[in-house]
Design a protein around this nucleic acid. Structure first.
Lengths: 156, 156
DNA sequence: ACGCAATAAATGTACATACACTCAATAAAT
DNA sequence: ATTTATTGAGTGTATGTACATTTATTGCGT
């Protein structure tokens, strides 16, 4: 276990943590960055970013139905993501289609193209494999980690 | 405990997790975003961003000594932070000083100004108080969370 | 029906990340 | 000692975040 304790200290070259609760904040931020980096480098061969991939995944959840921009935004992990701009990039690559909303003219309805579906398919294979090696935990440990994270955010 | 399990599902409006290890990835990314948002809104009154605050804190660790850009970068949580640009912003606000390195002319040596020290002092008070309410864990739980995060990154 | 508030999407701006590249200074090789 | 490689900082570009503002459309109150 000692090796583990040393790892964050190595990564941010500091061991001046006031207490475990202080350390946990830095540890979560670092781990999130570590995950994003690895995902991004895996997605590079598809010309996708982490966020673009996330939007494609969300669209796939409703496929072949369309989704409006607001519904996509509500499912994003980072709530301040600027979905219209991410959708712009996906549109330029013809991975999604846009259409004016029929029931509500203010909405822009987004859906995956065949090209988008295909790229998502191959990208998902890669990401799933990565996630497997990246999360070196048992289901039991993962469950405990999830519970601790939820408890941490209790005062929300 | 059930309330907790529901929380991430609410936040990203999804409950289609393949397993606990899949969920843990999303949970860490979401928690990191949640923390950063709260820190940023707390720092707004000082005109600082989360990253600028981080650089000031790192400089304070060596104060009154100077640090070169590379050493600062090595202590950043997000390793791809572009430190020269963050330092630019701090310089414009006169919170830090730059000087050409004397022993190595390639280095730019950075140090806090009095104004930087003062702002950091007040900002730190706020952030410490925030961190206290934001991390609703006991020391025991925080320690366990830290160990699980380190174990998760084992295949690095 | 008309006017006004509310909503959805898009846009503008400042800041940051990710990554390639340049430039000057130092270190290394011969 | 001179050439060559390496290193530290800075810059350029594309992408994304955070947040305010704009524009078009809808819904509501009267």
């Amino acid at each position: 276990m000692y090796i583990c304790i040393v790892k964050l200290e190595q990564a941010i070259q500091s061991n001046k943590f006031k207490n475990q609760r202080h350390k946990v904040g830095l540890n979560i931020l670092y781990t999130a960055w570590w995950m994003k980096s690895r995902v991004n480098s895996e997605l590079k061969e598809f010309g996708l970013t982490h966020e673009q991939y996330n939007v494609l995944r969300i669209l796939n959840g409703k496929h072949p139905e369309q989704m409006c921009v607001k519904d996509i935004a509500g499912r994003m992990i980072e709530k301040s993501s600027n979905v219209p701009r991410i959708v712009d990039k996906l549109d330029l690559k013809n991975l999604i289609k846009r259409a004016q909303g029929e029931v509500d003219g203010r909405q822009t309805m987004i859906s995956l193209t065949n090209k988008g579906l295909e790229i998502l398919h191959y990208a998902t294979k890669k990401i799933d494999a990565l996630q497997h090696t990246m999360t070196a935990l048992t289901e039991e440990e993962a469950n405990q980690l999830n519970m601790l994270l939820e408890k941490m955010r209790e005062n929300d």
